[in-house]
Nucleic acid binder design. Structure first.
Length: 479
RNA sequence: CGGGGCGUAGCGCAGCCUGGUAGCGCGCCUGCCUUGGGCGCAGGAGGUCUGGAGUUCGAAUCUCCACGCCCCGACCA
């Protein structure tokens, strides 16, 4: 690392983000443009995300499966909105084993088509429904402009695909999964999100209705952090996913799909990080605590390590993910900065003074410097750490929520609206026309993020055209 | 795909204008010394200067052509 100092978030948020991701060793650039190598530390965070989501999926009756990476090109063409939406960004395989293929294969940009094909074979009767399947995989979309974690050619995610007998069941599933994403974001990632419905313009290609959770990043911009689609009968009709109802009549299924990707790692970085680097929410952090031993002589080292090992053992017994930093030849100061860059929520500093007093210094990542330090007894330290981790988790959520609230405006007119979207979210009445939505985007670069499910304000007048509007929507510049 | 920036040691860069021995900082290795907020000293390893063609006695440097990356815009999990 040539330069120790990170660019500050206020002077260059984008460069700050890149540097944090690289220096915290979450990811690296790959030899192919727009592709990313997820390094062990970044992958460990993703694994914790996948674990928390996966257990929620299973608790609601979903099973995991694996569908192929390669999809016949013709499959994409079967659903007309889907083909229009995804064709420009497909990666296509035309040669296999040295021979030109009879039909080109696309690398999946998402799996509605190939799963639809399978469901058509598997579903015969209403008794076969619902089908509730999820898969963990990666997909490829040939994006023009990429950024680590936020938008890469290949990204990792989960995609759930379900089939139901009725529209009501499909809608309930769609909403249930949106709730799961919301719950995950809030409780595990400490990321406040706004669950809501997408506009027609922002809807998934092939969906009747798209819901998303939207989060505010540290620069006030919006990030779509997860989506849940009610696909209606669009894919059922394209792939003939039919069942015989109990009256003996063929019916098309109602299908859904929902996904959350490694983009969420980027969201965590941009929501919680500070000028020192990452700050990871304790519930997802690969290491929740790191022990930094401090010593001069060999005798000191022995005594410090002995105490450190005891602390470590106690924490492991309490199911705390703890790392002991035994690296030689690095000063404590270096290690402090290093672990702050990596966002470890809590640091245990243990030196000769602490060994003598029977204490250890706990240092909170979310409160830099002396203010976040407290000296506690080594006796029963795991219990104190557990409590502190909960406090840190709560504090991170509260801080992110306060930030969002203070950067969310309810503009009275279009003039105020334009100012509001320069620094954050604007919550405004919108008549629902794509025309107003398009004009707003053209004039302010802000897009309709979602129509929040929570609509307490009642009807009003469209912020753009002044016509009556029965709902409010979030507008913001977005990633 | 349009606009801009940039390709020289692992990373960050200087050298290029004005052609003539390949350089600096950090990192890395060895040793000593240090360690409570990014220690210090000494020694050392590491380069087909993105690729190709051309001009020239001679090219990192000049010319042309490719390729790649980053940033900003239009499009997107």
């Amino acid at each position: 690392m040539a330069d120790r100092k990170l660019p500050t978030r206020s002077e260059d948020f984008s460069e700050w983000y890149n540097q944090v991701v690289l220096r915290a060793e979450m990811a690296d650039y790959a030899p192919v443009r727009g592709c990313m190598i997820v390094r062990p530390y970044g992958w460990a965070l993703w694994e914790n995300i996948t674990y928390q989501l996966d257990r929620r999926f299973k608790a609601t009756g979903h099973l995991n499966a694996a569908f192929p990476l390669l999809i016949p090109r013709s499959f994409i063409d079967k659903e007309k909105h889907h083909v229009a939406g995804f064709s420009p960004e497909l990666a296509v395989v035309t040669i296999g084993g040295g021979e030109e293929l009879e039909e080109p294969l696309v690398i999946r940009p998402t799996s509605e088509t190939i799963i639809g094909h399978a469901y058509a074979k598997w579903i015969q009767s209403y008794r076969d429904l619902p089908v509730l399947i999820n898969q963990w995989n990666s997909v490829v979309r040939w994006e023009l402009r990429t950024k680590l974690f936020l938008r890469t050619l290949e990204f990792f995610w989960q995609e759930g695909h379900t089939a139901h007998a009725t529209l009501e069941e499909a809608e309930a599933e769609t909403r249930q999964m949106l709730d799961i994403y919301t719950d995950f974001a809030v409780r595990e990632a400490a990321v406040p999100v706004i669950p809501g419905r997408k506009s027609d313009a922002e809807r998934f290609a092939g969906a009747d209705r798209t819901y998303s959770i939207e989060a505010m990043m540290g620069d006030g911009k919006a990030l779509q952090a997860g989506t849940s689609h009610n696909l209606g009968q669009n894919f059922a009709k394209a792939f003939e996913i039919k069942y015989l109802d109990n009256g003996g009549v063929h019916q098309f299924c109602w299908t859904t799909s929902w996904g959350l990707s490694t983009r969420f790692v980027g969201a965590i970085v941009m929501v919680h990080g500070d000028d020192q680097g990452l700050i990871l929410p304790p519930r997802l952090a690969p290491y929740q605590a790191v022990i930094v031993p401090i010593f001069k002589s060999d005798e000191e080292k022995r005594a410090v390590f002995e105490a450190a090992q005891k602390i470590r053992a106690e924490m492991i017994a309490a199911d705390i993910r703890v790392k002991m930093d035994e690296r030689e030849g690095m000063s404590p100061g270096f290690k402090f900065n290093d672990w702050e860059m990596r966002g470890v929520p809590l640091r245990v500093e243990l030196g000769p003074k602490d060994v003598a007093s029977g204490n250890a210094v706990l240092s909170r990542r979310d409160r830099p410097g002396r203010e976040g330090k407290v000296s506690v007894s080594q006796q029963g330290i795991a219990g104190v750490v557990e409590k502190l981790l909960v406090e840190i988790q709560d504090a991170l959520f509260q801080r992110a929520l306060d930030f969002r609230n203070s950067n969310t405006a309810e503009p009275k007119d279009y003039g105020e609206f334009k100012i509001a979207v320069e620094k954050g979210f604007a919550l405004s009445h919108w008549c629902g026309s794509s025309d107003c939505e398009g004009k707003i985007k053209e004039e302010t670069k802000a897009t309709m993020r979602c129509i929040p499910l929570d609509q307490t304000a009642g009807p009003g007048k469209c912020i753009y055209c002044g016509q009556s509007a029965h709902e409010r929507a979030i507008f913001a510049k977005a990633y």
